[in-house]
């Protein structure tokens, strides 16, 4: 079938992109000013540790050998040792990843639910005053830097009114039986609300405008006219036919949004001291913790590229014209 061969070629492309980005990253970190060894071996390590790392990453060999080793290690999930945490990068990065995913999904779900409903409403109210006032407001929220929105929210709701904590993901001194218990605790939720709101405010504009444009376009389609001729209820016309078609690209945007937010959250995570992947990258770069920086960057990239692929997959699943090609 035509559909599956297209997906295979997209998958190959995805792997190609991942490999290329990893290679670029390898080069950037090896060409880093100073000794190439400095990039992976911290002088604070014990001599035995330094030796073992040198061997592991082939730091005393040619650049090409190092590259082969790097790729080999990467495939085994071995990203080296964090200078700062003195633990394997993979481990360190995974805790942060959970926090980032919680923040990303939380804000995206709120933003897309709100955006889709409002977008459909704006399409319905086309040419009215609601639209004339609403669209500029939406454009303004899209133009506001999300970290600045976060700062304003913090100043008002945390420091001003004292309703929410001023940063972090959990209150100090709390302990949980498991990572899941931590993420689904009330304490975590209280910490999550402000950063997620700041992000959601920034993110809702895209689904809103997308939904509005799509709805306007779909409402012009012949099949919507036909649905009216069939005497179907307004509900059936708007929801079952118009919205279902208009949602196709929005669903794709959602998947793409996950990929982009994981890296794009960097600033919001910093403002709210949210212990996520982005803030970890910033701290690692600032502290010259190169293995950790590289690991965090690679994970962010992997999520981005994977979600680009998922978006493609999702589109072909949701659109029967692609999913059920052939049979003509």
């Amino acid at each position: 079938m035509q559909g599956s061969s297209r997906l295979v070629s997209r998958l190959v492309l995805t792997l190609f992109v991942l490999w290329t980005v990893a290679t670029i990253l390898f080069l950037i970190f090896r060409l880093m000013p100073g000794s190439p060894l400095a990039a992976f071996v911290s002088p604070t390590f014990t001599p035995e540790q330094q030796d073992s790392l040198r061997r592991q990453f082939g730091l005393d060999r040619t650049l090409f050998d190092q590259y082969l080793l790097f790729i080999g290690n990467l495939l085994q999930g071995n990203l080296g040792e964090s200078f700062f945490y003195k633990r394997p990068v993979g481990e360190v990065v995974m805790t942060a990843f959970a926090n980032t995913i919680a923040l990303t999904l939380g804000s995206l779900i709120v933003a897309y639910t709100f955006g889709v409903l409002m977008g459909a409403m704006f399409a319905w109210k086309r040419g009215t005053r609601v639209e004339a006032v609403g669209i500029p407001i939406v454009l303004v929220t899209r133009a506001a830097p999300e970290f600045w929105l976060g700062m304003v929210l913090l100043a008002i709701f945390s420091f001003g009114l004292g309703w929410f904590p001023g940063g972090g993901a959990n209150s100090a001194g709390q302990s949980f039986s498991s990572e899941w218990a931590r993420i689904f605790s009330l304490d975590f939720l209280r910490h999550l609300i402000l950063p997620a709101t700041a992000l959601a405010l920034y993110l809702q504009g895209l689904p809103l405008l997308l939904m509005r444009t799509n709805m306007l376009e779909v409402m012009q389609e012949d099949f919507v006219t036909m649905a009216r001729m069939k005497g179907l209820s307004n509900w059936a016309i708007v929801i079952r036919h118009a919205a279902r078609n208009a949602l196709l690209p929005v669903a794709t945007a959602f998947a793409l949004g996950i990929g982009q937010s994981v890296g794009g959250n960097v600033v919001v995570e910093t403002v709210f001291s949210w212990p996520g992947l982005g803030r970890m990258l910033v701290d690692a770069v600032a502290a010259s913790d190169y293995p950790l920086a590289q690991g965090a960057f690679l994970l962010i990239t992997t999520v981005l590229v994977t979600m680009n692929f998922v978006a493609d997959l999702l589109y072909s699943l949701l659109d029967p014209r692609i999913a059920h090609a052939g049979h003509r």
Partner: peptide
Amino acid sequence: MRIADVALGIPFLPFVIVLSSF
């Protein structure tokens, strides 16, 4: 277009951050 695909696979803000350490 393949180069474009690669560029689209690079997370922008993290890239600028790594770049500025380089």
